[in-house]
Write a protein that binds this DNA or RNA. Structure first.
Lengths: 190, 190
DNA sequence: ACAATTATATACCGAACGGTATATAATTAG
DNA sequence: CTAATTATATACCGTTCGGTATATAATTGT
């Protein structure tokens, strides 16, 4: 779609990812989108509403992908491999949004960008944590460390994706997934 | 020191780390510091100059610590352990600055915060890379991967520090260092 | 066809932005 | 003790900020 609403979403995502939410003005967005300010406010009510709409637009797909990949089938290594693969594929297909998401997540805790992305991050965390909770029934030594494992794995994934998005790590996808997965497993079981 | 210059540096660091560089106004800074605007401009010339001064103030010590910890003594595991320990200690002692540094580093590449922190990050990278260059003389399989190893290790360290600063990972320092180090080494030699 | 609704533009608002011209205290040097 | 320098404040600058009152096109339902 190239209607004005979609155009605003696309353009704003790119600008936020490139320059940061605070650094981009509403005027700049509407000019880049070829519309005027009232059009933006007609669809999104506020600058923050536009940001929320961007996030909402991507959240459903991302969470569905993560949810699906994090299904536990009594093979934790396999599950983690699938999860990592899913994240890498998603980041590869949505590099602009993922970059924006990362920047917002690492923004200061009480900043507007961070507060807007916090919920989506938390939902991902819950899904990953649930994977480790299920796995703990097969691996006693993992018990009561769900939160730490989920946070660490998500952190590792985001670290590698950030390196990839910065071009500091090559994109031989399967090998990278293998390395990250086994690196993480080794961190748990050693 | 509690002179106005130091007061401005301290207050601004805290505000930038808490709310983000762009979201904090000059007026807000001087009010929190108990001075007026011309005082800020007298010492730092601009808002960006204030940011540069904050970074410069911390850069010397941080780089000295990293440089010292990254000395290679033909025991790569030991070197990495020391490096990781040094980073963890520094982050523990300068949590506000480290949080600000991370947020700026993860800001969009062409944003003002990112451009201001890029040099300090690059200097850290060079030091760590140099460690791996030296180690490559003892470990042939590491050759020509200095940059990737340095980027990955720095990314891992920052990930764990971010988790620690967010309270998502407990602070049993020595165990965390051991886990991260061996996790990273396993990623290399497997 | 025409009324209602949806979508877009012109022109503007007060407030906050980063930054400064100018004056005056406080300190230091001779 | 005074002259120069350093440090701080009052009051203001032009610009940009996010946001809106109002009017008018375009579309839709009947």
């Amino acid at each position: 779609m190239t209607d004005n609403r979609s155009q605003l979403l696309t353009v704003a995502t790119h600008l936020f990812a490139t320059h940061g939410y605070d650094a981009v003005g509403v005027q700049q967005i509407v000019e880049a989108a070829g519309v005027t300010k009232p059009t933006l406010y007609y669809y999104f009510e506020s600058k923050q509403g536009l940001l929320a709409a961007i996030i909402l637009e991507h959240a459903e797909l991302l969470l569905a992908i993560v949810q699906n990949a994090a299904a536990y089938d009594h093979d934790i290594t396999r599950s983690i491999t699938e999860l990592v693969t899913a994240y890498f594929n998603y980041a590869q297909q949505n590099p602009v949004f993922y970059r924006m998401m990362l920047a917002m997540w690492f923004s200061p805790p009480s900043s507007e960008p961070h507060l807007n992305i916090a919920d989506l991050q938390h939902q991902q965390f819950l899904i990953i944590e649930s994977l480790f909770k299920q796995a703990a029934t097969d691996h006693g030594n993992m018990r009561n460390r769900h939160a730490q494992y989920a946070a660490t794995l998500k952190g590792l994934i985001d670290t590698y994706i950030a390196l990839y998005l910065q071009g500091l790590v090559v994109n031989d996808n399967p090998e990278l997934v293998y390395r990250l997965t086994h690196q993480f497993m080794h961190g748990i079981f050693s």
